[in-house]
Each structure stands twice: as C-alpha cells, then as structure tokens.
Amino acid sequence: MTEFGVIVGTDGVDAAWSAGADYVEPTIVGNLVVPSQDGGWMRSPHYDGAPSPSFAILFPGELQLADPSFPTERIDAYLESAMAIVGSAAQPGAKIVFGSGRARTLPDGVDEAQGRALLARVLTRARDVAARHDLRVLLEPLHRGETNMINSITEAVAFLDEFSIADVQVVADLFHIMTEAEPLDVVRDEGARIGHAHIADSGRIPPGQGDWPLAAFLTALREGGYTGPVSVECHFADFEPELTAALAHLRALDAAA
C-alpha cells in the first residue's frame, strides 16, 4: 500500500500525525532553515520533530538561480548551510524537492540558454552537496504561473538529459500536471524518471473535495513503476479534519486500484 504524507510546517506536525499521516514532508525555507544574524543561514530554534523522509521548498526566492548577475558564491554558501541543516533533520537517503519557482525564474532580458545553463549548474551543485549528507535532490516541474522554466514532466526530463545530469529524478505533482494540461500518460511513460509525487484536488483543495482524476494519477504512477510515497500538498481551511478525510479518501482509491 502507498504511504501518504503531507507537506507542512512545524506548527502543523502534531495535527498531521493526529490526522493519520504516514509521514510529514517539512518545508525548508522559513521553517527548518532561517536567516542567521551574521547574514548566513541556521536551523530554526523552533523546528522540532522526528527525522523526515522528504522535504520541500529548497531555495528562498531572493536567490536568483538563473540570473548571471547574481553572485554564485551566495548560492553555493546557502547550499552548504542548508544541506547540512536538512541532513540534521532527515532520515538517511531523504528526498529534497527542488521546486522554488521564484528563485529559478529566468529574469527579463537574460538569454534563455544562459539561464538554463546556470540552473543546470545549481541543480548539479545541489545534487552533489546533498549527496555528502546522504540526501537526494529531485527536480519538480512547476506551472507557468510560478516560473517560466521547466513547466512539465516532459520538459524536466529533457532538461536533465540536455545537461547530462545523472542521479536526479523528477517529481510528479498533480497540481502542476493539471494546471499545465499535461496528459497523465506522461506519468506512466516516464515512470522510470519519477522519484517522488505530490497530490491535490482541483484548484489545490484537499483530495476528495474536487473533481480531479486522483485515482487515474495514482494508477499512472503505479503502472509506470513508481511505488514510493505520495505527499498531499494543498490549501486547507481546517487542517486536521480535512487532512483526515483526504488521507482516508486517498487510501480507499489506492486500495481499489
């Protein structure tokens, strides 16, 4: 049976366990990793919890990853600090989702090829720094409302191949798939490249409250060979009861698949 977790900040962890989540996927920026007084980064003194198997939101928006005028040493320094901090809160082999749409957006006036090369450098660097802490970085396609670079699973796979970036898999996120009108067949066809999954219902409401093809998405993941966990990532009006219902709905769909 599939494990279902939820993306959440520290303030929601206890409620997530009470709702029956199999795991929590903490956010990194502003939750686990926060600015330090010396201008660097530190582990939040408010962060608490058992070691997690996956984490979301890697980069703060002020780090402009595809901007040639932005100092690469600031990006590298952040990665060194952040990966060490995440490693201190992670299970062995934990996954880090590289979404971070604002940080990776190509600025106006920057050559696209140059921006893509810079982003490839950052992704490669993130992969290598993460590996030193027994962590794995995954690339998440984001819809065009969040970024202008890498908006679909197809584009993510092509990007990794273009720059020969090995040992990085792709996140299948139903919200971005549906928003970009990418066919679910891609999830099955690129199953060998999928390393993690996020799920939400229509408009990013909790699973079971909308009309998106949740069962078809779970089936496509399974038919493609993905047998890992699936994280709920959505907007809650009343977190614990809505998560309880969402998890029950997803488990029923999973059992019937």
Rank of each mutant, 00 (worst) to 15 (best):
M1A: 15
E3D: 15
F4V: 04
G5M: 09
V6N: 11
V6I: 15
I7V: 15
V8W: 07
V13M: 09
A15N: 06
A16Y: 04
A16K: 10
S18C: 06
A21I: 12
E25I: 04
I28M: 08
V29L: 00
G30T: 09
V33C: 12
V34K: 10
V34W: 05
V34I: 15
P35M: 14
S36K: 07
Q37C: 01
D38F: 06
D38W: 05
G39N: 08
G40K: 02
W41R: 04
M42V: 14
S44G: 10
P45M: 04
H46S: 13
D48W: 08
A50H: 08
S52Y: 07
S54G: 12
A56G: 04
A56M: 11
F59R: 05
F59L: 07
F59Y: 12
Q64F: 01
L65G: 02
F70P: 01
F70D: 02
R74N: 02
I75Q: 01
D76L: 01
D76I: 01
A77G: 04
S81R: 15
S81N: 14
A84H: 10
I85M: 08
V86N: 06
G87V: 08
A89L: 05
A90H: 06
Q91A: 13
G93W: 12
K95R: 14
I96P: 05
V97D: 04
V97R: 03
G99Y: 03
S100E: 03
R102W: 00
L106H: 05
L106I: 15
L106M: 10
L106E: 05
L106N: 08
G109S: 09
V110Q: 09
E112M: 11
A113Y: 00
A113F: 00
Q114M: 13
G115I: 11
G115F: 13
L119D: 09
L119K: 07
A120C: 07
R121K: 13
L123A: 08
R125T: 15
A126I: 04
A131Y: 00
H133P: 07
V137M: 09
L139S: 07
E140Y: 01
E140D: 06
L142V: 10
R144E: 11
G145C: 12
G145H: 11
E146M: 12
M149T: 14
N151A: 13
I153A: 03
T154P: 00
A158R: 14
L160W: 09
I165R: 09
I165Q: 10
V168Y: 04
V168Q: 08
Q169D: 13
V170M: 02
V170L: 02
D173N: 01
L174P: 02
H176V: 01
M178D: 03
T179M: 11
E180W: 01
E182Y: 02
L184V: 05
R188Q: 15
D189T: 12
E190W: 03
G191F: 10
A197N: 02
G208L: 13
G208A: 13
Q209N: 06
D211F: 06
P213D: 10
P213Y: 10
L214H: 10
A216I: 00
A216Q: 15
T219H: 10
T219Y: 02
E223V: 01
G228R: 03
V230C: 09
S231L: 09
A237M: 06
D238S: 15
P241A: 14
T244P: 03
A245P: 00
A246W: 03
L247C: 09
H249W: 10
R251C: 07
L253M: 14
D254S: 14
A255Q: 12
A255P: 00
A257V: 12
A257M: 13
A257D: 11
